[in-house]
C-alpha cells in the first residue's frame, strides 16, 4: 500500500468555522482516512508536527506573536501549505480592527471601556503580544494554495483534497469559488 498522505491543521486568528466545515465532509472522511493520516491538528490534539507533513491547512489570520511562531513551524514542516478560508486569505473579520490604532483597541478593551474592572493592559509573559495589524498568512510565509470561503464549503475542501490525493494539480471549478 502506498504511503499515506499526512495532513496537519491549525487555527490562528480564526473561529474554527473552517475546521467545522472540514468535518462537514461527513462520511467522506472515511474515504479520506483510507489515504490520509492526521498529524498536528486540533482534531488529534497533537501539539506540534512530529515530522515532515505533506499538507498543512491553516485557518485564520495572523494577529499576534504566537500566530507567527505557529505559522512558521507549519511552513517548515509542511510540503504544501494551504490558506483555508477568508481570514487566512485576507485577514477576514479580525482585520476590522486594522483601521483602528492598536493602542486605542487595547485601551478601549482593558482600560477605558464600559464595564472594565481593575483596568490594566495585560502584561503576563504567557500571553502573546498583539501585532499592530492583523495580516493574512501570505504576508508572513509562502503559501501554495488558497481555499476561499467563510468558511469554504465541505465540497471545496473535498474537491481540493481529492485532486491532491489523486496526484493532480488542484483547481477549483468556478461554481465552487465563494468568498462568504
Amino acid at each position: 500500500m502506498a504511503e499515506k498522505l499526512t495532513i496537519a491543521t491549525t487555527s490562528l486568528a480564526g473561529c474554527f468555522g473552517c475546521h467545522m466545515s472540514f468535518l462537514d465532509i461527513d462520511e467522506r472522511i472515511l474515504a479520506l482516512a483510507e489515504v490520509a493520516r492526521f498529524d498536528r491538528s486540533p482534531l488529534t490534539d497533537i501539539k506540534h508536527c512530529r515530522d515532515r507533513v505533506d499538507l498543512g491547512l491553516v485557518e485564520g489570520g495572523v494577529c499576534n506573536a504566537e500566530n507567527v511562531h505557529t505559522l512558521r513551524e507549519f511552513r517548515r514542516h509542511c510540503r504544501i501549505l494551504v490558506a483555508v478560508g477568508a481570514c487566512a486569505i485576507n485577514g477576514g473579520l479580525p482585520t476590522l480592527r486594522n483601521p483602528i490604532a492598536l493602542e486605542e483597541c487595547l485601551q478601549e478593551a482593558y482600560r477605558d471601556g464600559i464595564g472594565v474592572e481593575n483596568p490594566q493592559i495585560p502584561d503576563d509573559v504567557e500571553l502573546p503580544l498583539l501585532l499592530d495589524k492583523v495580516h493574512p498568512i501570505h504576508e508572513v510565509v509562502r503559501v501554495d494554495y488558497s481555499l476561499p470561503g467563510c468558511p469554504p464549503s465541505a465540497d471545496v475542501i473535498w474537491a481540493f483534497l481529492s485532486d491532491l490525493a489523486a496526484g493532480g494539480e488542484p483547481s477549483l471549478p468556478r461554481e465552487l469559488i465563494h468568498y462568504d
Binding site: 482585520t95 504576508e139 503559501v143 488558497s146 476561499p148 468556478r174 469559488i177 468568498y179
Partner: peptide
Amino acid sequence: LQAAAYFLGMTDAHFPFFYPR
C-alpha cells in the same frame, strides 16, 4: 467585483493588503 473575481477564478488576493483608512 466579487462576481468578476469568481468568474476569473481568483482564489486569493496575492498582493500585500493596503488596509486603507
